[in-house]
């Protein structure tokens, strides 16, 4: 085991780390932004609204991320209009944007289904109560349905974030030098796949555990009402219940 080539090339890894973080965070933010309206449309009982969103999530959840990225990068790249267009627009030559689009659409599809599930799990009594208070549809969503849906979606969404981080490793197959891409360059230049990939695995490991820690804090904050209360408060709660019964 000799880690000197990795230490000597730490800059390559740092650059790769930066690209990975960029790709993952950008695709997650845009994907989440797309997923919220899509999830609301997906819960619609009108098939004309529901079906297009359903087919979108069906396609992106039904095929591997790698296949989607190949379709976009190599598939689309063979189309004559794309070849001509990329002669005028330089950024179309850059693999980065294809990976970003593929990642974004993929995570949007998964997040849509996560949020849809959470929205459909909303207690109908809460919606009726909101209506009874005279809230509009929009207000009902922003004040009642979405806040509680986000809360319930959080554990599943934290998994999606981690899957996305790990999924981003395949960006290296379309020439992007992300973390994994950096490891592949080192592994192939020094013929030391073991050291190169252990080092990069350790970096992914650290990011993953930072993310898990972050989500734990968020859950503590958002699920404060589900934690066992202190004794005094617990007594208060039984009293409340007693009053309710009366």
């Amino acid at each position: 085991m000799d880690f000197t080539p990795i230490l000597e090339n730490y800059q390559l890894y740092l650059k790769g780390l930066w690209i990975t973080l960029q790709l993952v965070s950008l695709s997650l933010v845009i994907g989440l932004g797309m997923a919220v309206p899509l999830a609301i449309l997906r819960t619609s009982s009108n098939p004309l609204v529901n079906a297009p969103v359903w087919s979108f999530t069906y396609f992106f959840r039904g095929t591997p991320l790698l296949v989607q990225m190949f379709l976009l990068y190599y598939g689309l790249g063979q189309m004559q209009f794309m070849i001509e267009l990329s002669q005028q627009l330089d950024f179309l030559k850059d693999a980065y944007w294809y990976a970003l689009v593929a990642f974004t659409l993929n995570t949007a599809a998964y997040t849509t289904e996560i949020i849809r599930g959470a929205i459909e799990g909303t207690d109908y009594g809460e919606v009726e109560a909101a209506r009874a208070c005279g809230m509009s549809r929009f207000q009902t969503y922003t004040r009642v349905i979405l806040p509680s849906a986000f809360r319930r979606a959080l554990p599943a969404y934290s998994n999606e974030v981690i899957f996305m981080l790990h999924g981003s490793a395949i960006a290296s197959v379309i020439t992007i030098i992300d973390l994994t891409g950096a490891a592949r360059i080192i592994a192939s230049r020094y013929y030391n796949p073991f050291e190169a990939f252990i080092a990069v695995g350790a970096v992914y490991f650290c990011i993953t555990f930072t993310l898990i820690g972050g989500f734990k804090l968020l859950e503590r904050h958002w699920f404060a009402h589900l934690r066992p209360r202190e004794e005094v408060k617990a007594k208060g709660r039984t009293k409340d219940k007693a009053q309710q019964v009366i």
């Binding site: 190599y74 790249g77 063979q78 070849i83 990329s86 002669q87 030559k93 197959v173 020439t175 360059i185």
Partner: peptide
């Protein structure tokens, strides 16, 4: 420098005008 896993992929990107 753009690095590809196989020579065939490099040809594809040449035809696609990316390199």
């Amino acid at each position: 420098v753009k690095r590809y896993g196989t020579q065939d992929e490099a040809y594809l990107d040449m035809v696609a005008g990316r390199i």
